[in-house]
Simulated scan of single mutants.
Amino acid sequence: MTNTWFITGTSSGFGRLLTEQLLSRGDRVAATLRRPEALDDLRAEYGDLLWTAQLDVTDAGQVRRVVDDAFKALGTIDVVVNNAGYGVFASVEEATDEQIRQVIDTNLLGSIHAVRAALPHLRAQQYGRILQVSTAGGQTTYPNFSYYHASKWGIEGFSETVAAEVAPFGISLTIVEPGATPTGFGSSLATAPAMPEYTDTPAGEVRRMLADGNFSLPGDPRKIATAMIDLVDSGQTPLRLPLGSDTYDDVRASLVARLAEHDTHRTVAYSVSADTGA
């Protein structure tokens, strides 16, 4: 069975790999990216299976127009993949206002725009799937990624809410959480001049690890793209899909630690309830 996919951020990384793998097996792909010419090689090879459009996900009006055009051109779309992303690698004080705005506009608001644009079409179809690409950093944190985390924790909260709201319409949403993977994303991270005050802090340590090439990237990008496709093929609709040993281990450790701390506050939490008589 073939499907039709709408994918953002297809010029490189997971978006490009998904597009390649889907086209090679005969699926149709509506691929959106800032520079459509980056997919000229795939268009030449696969012809009408590939529909492309220029898209800047930070432009809400453009997102609506492109999504509407894709549904109009292709008739139905089975899977919407929110993949476009932008990263800022800097301590909380080092990042510029423009960098902060760009990461929030792309990762959080851009994904929200795409979901809102697609939902009327998916409701009319009475079926559909949304894959929201997040990261291990949507549930745990690492120094120098505070603004990236802000966007990913935000989109995970949004997505979890949307999943419950749209389930009655036959629409499912899965948050996909790849770990650190050599997709070229790291080399495209925006950076800022380092402040000496952070040299001997966790932020400085992670900066040195990245500069020295000691930042582990255990994920296999092709396997991750395949796992996303396999999930859709399986018909399973989990709320989250962790992909990568680092994602599994880091998120699990974070959740266990958070639950342990949460449990220490049970007495004071209950003490402020209105029915305690306090």
Rank of each mutant, 00 (worst) to 15 (best):
V133I: 15
D220H: 04
D69H: 11
D246H: 03
R252Y: 02
H121W: 02
D40E: 15
N107D: 09
R266C: 01
G87H: 05
I155C: 03
G87W: 02
S12I: 00
Y86G: 00
I112R: 07
G15I: 09
V256S: 10
G87I: 00
G15T: 07
A60K: 11
P182Q: 03
S91Y: 01
T226V: 01
T141E: 13
G186Y: 08
G137E: 09
N82G: 09
R64D: 15
V162I: 15
A136P: 02
G235C: 09
T183P: 04
L23K: 12
T174H: 03
Q125G: 10
G13V: 08
S216Q: 14
M228I: 07
R252V: 05
A73S: 13
L119T: 05
I100A: 08
G170D: 10
R116Y: 00
G184W: 02
S271V: 02
G157D: 05
A90K: 08
A114K: 01
F89P: 02
F169T: 08
S271G: 13
V232W: 04
L189F: 03
S273R: 14
L255P: 02
G179E: 06
T52H: 09
A278C: 01
L255S: 11
T32A: 13
V81L: 10
Q99A: 04
R34E: 07
W153Q: 08
S245P: 01
T140P: 10
E205D: 12
L55N: 06
V133H: 02
W153D: 11
T199N: 15
R252L: 10
G204Q: 09
D200M: 03
R25P: 10
T226Y: 00
R258G: 13
L42C: 06
T10L: 12
N82R: 07
A227V: 00
A38Q: 15
L23R: 11
A70T: 09
F158Y: 15
Y270G: 11
Y127K: 15
I100Y: 00
T8S: 15
T2V: 12
L50M: 04
D69M: 04
F158M: 11
L239W: 07
P218D: 07
E93R: 09
R116K: 15
Q99P: 07
D249G: 00
I171D: 09
K223Q: 14
A124N: 12
G170Y: 12
Y198E: 02
G138S: 14
P218R: 08
T174L: 05
S172T: 15
I175G: 10
T4H: 10
S91M: 00
V88C: 06
A192L: 03
P202M: 06
L122K: 07
I100S: 03
S273C: 01
A90M: 03
S273Q: 13
H113G: 05
T4I: 13
T174D: 01
A260F: 03
L131A: 10
W153R: 11
V79H: 03
F169D: 15
S111M: 11
Q102E: 12
